[in-house]
Design a protein around this nucleic acid. Sequence first.
DNA 1: TTGAAAGCGCTAACAC
DNA 2: GTGTTAGCGCTTTCAA
Lengths: 332, 332
Amino acid sequence: MAKISDIAKQAGVSTATVSHVLNNTRYVSQELRARVEQAARELGYRPNLVARSLRLKRTRTLGFIVSDIRSPFYSEVARAVEDQASSFGYNVIVCNSDENYTRELAYIETLISKRIDGLILAPTLGEHGFLKEVAKFWFPVLLINRRLDGSGLPCISTDNRTGAYEAITHLIRAGHRRIGAIGGLAALSTTADRLEGYQVALREAGLPIREDLIWLGRPTVEEGQRASEKLLSLESPPTALFAFSTMLTLGVLAALKSRNLRCPEDVAFVGFSDTLWCPFTDPPLTTVAQPAREVGLKACTLLLDVLHGKPLPDETYLIPPTLIHRRSCGCP
Amino acid sequence: MAKISDIAKQAGVSTATVSHVLNNTRYVSQELRARVEQAARELGYRPNLVARSLRLKRTRTLGFIVSDIRSPFYSEVARAVEDQASSFGYNVIVCNSDENYTRELAYIETLISKRIDGLILAPTLGEHGFLKEVAKFWFPVLLINRRLDGSGLPCISTDNRTGAYEAITHLIRAGHRRIGAIGGLAALSTTADRLEGYQVALREAGLPIREDLIWLGRPTVEEGQRASEKLLSLESPPTALFAFSTMLTLGVLAALKSRNLRCPEDVAFVGFSDTLWCPFTDPPLTTVAQPAREVGLKACTLLLDVLHGKPLPDETYLIPPTLIHRRSCGCP
DNA sequence: TTGAAAGCGCTAACAC
DNA sequence: GTGTTAGCGCTTTCAA
């Protein structure tokens, strides 16, 4: 664990000179430069970034808090964030909030204490007023996926409204008039936006918005299955279903299977979030593909911009998703 | 950004007292304790863990390097590691090596400089002799998933040999005598172990090991598809296929689909790594489910044990996988 | 062109 | 019971 003063001694120069050689931060003669470099090599020197961080008041470390890194969407975002961050010399600490407000808060406290340079956050439900303080006092905060209206915090997100609108419009064009919607927690902006897209599409087509065709709740496979069963048991059941997330999609598939319903012949289906598996399910799934990589890249790029002096934007950036046509929607 | 000396001033005590109150590290009278706590609250004090780390020579931060966090296996491992780490007050920096030795090396350098307390690593291919030095000089290193034979580094891994053995034995019992194997890079211990399990199962059943039924290569969907096409084009093609990874499994499915082969009627199939989607593919997939969570938990637990003073084991821990029976293997 | 030394915020040995 | 202070390893101002 050689330190700068060890190198200085061995090379017969001052610590200032060593530091300047190592960081290329002021002119040093060839002679001394060579001696310093050799000494550093001989001693197996590795700069201590902890000391450097203390001195410079920046850690080149970012925080990344999402509900669960196992989600295909968030792991893709995480990958993009890490790619971008590492290419600029930053590392990222990954945290799983599990949709738990208290856990999220605890992570934020820790990250403050660790003096991260910036935070990318998919907030849980709950009062997030304190984030304004965090952003003002500690480090820039960039939201992903979920807006926090009125917080003034910038957010990078899929254009959920448009995504849902296009999915539903597609089903309507194929002749469906009763389309069930199975969504996540109503209080999340993602759910609200997708629901809005669903409603606008119906309205524009002159179709009624039937509350009994809409189910919102916890986005798990089991709940999705239960929700599907419920909608499909209505006296005039939907001829098509639209699920807002991967877990709910799996729930729908389970329900169709357990009822021996053929898709798309008996019930058409469109999901939200494309994955590698979607082409291989029975039937291949039509989905709204979320631009996860773009969201991560944009969020991290903006964050790094701010760290390099640009002003924090207060806008929401919506990135358009893509409707991927496969068999489950029943179109040619 | 109040610091300890600010609190000391405000509370009219020494910095030592403040530190001891904050860390509960020596007796302080109720009186002073209360004054310190109030001052800390009033000033919105957050301990500076960078300074603390410099002083204590530990950061309560772990490194986690895998090829790609998007992989269902690694993201599950990451989640388990993070759960365990955070419950002990540690954070984890996640890095994606992309199977690139140079990238992996660069990350390790950075993590050394950041003075992480320990590293969990799924090594890429390449000479890893330097890891012994790292482990000796800087921090404990725990391998996951891939052994580095002769390195003396402990490894937590799926019992790949047994997993493959059981899958193949299952197919043999169902009457298959020509079973194709589609695996990843030959130099990886995971590939070698799974191949060994495949071979041992055949040998025990008195079946020949035909080299033309074995394909090893880059584990991508495209390569998996190409490999399947090749095996299925043999004059006496395999009646069952065994794929070593998720990507290769998707490739097999693509090949079966493009050739209009029914599974399991025309070709039976077993994959490695279970995912949420496996019950919903066409047909539902029989797979060897990897104990990803257990691997992550065990790795992190061992690492934390070492950090708390226990000696680093030099063993390899193999965690048994589970064969999950679904339709694709063609058994009742 | 280079060096001496202060100071980033914290802990803890030592002194009282 | 509490306080003084050195020092963790680095950067950078100031001086020469």
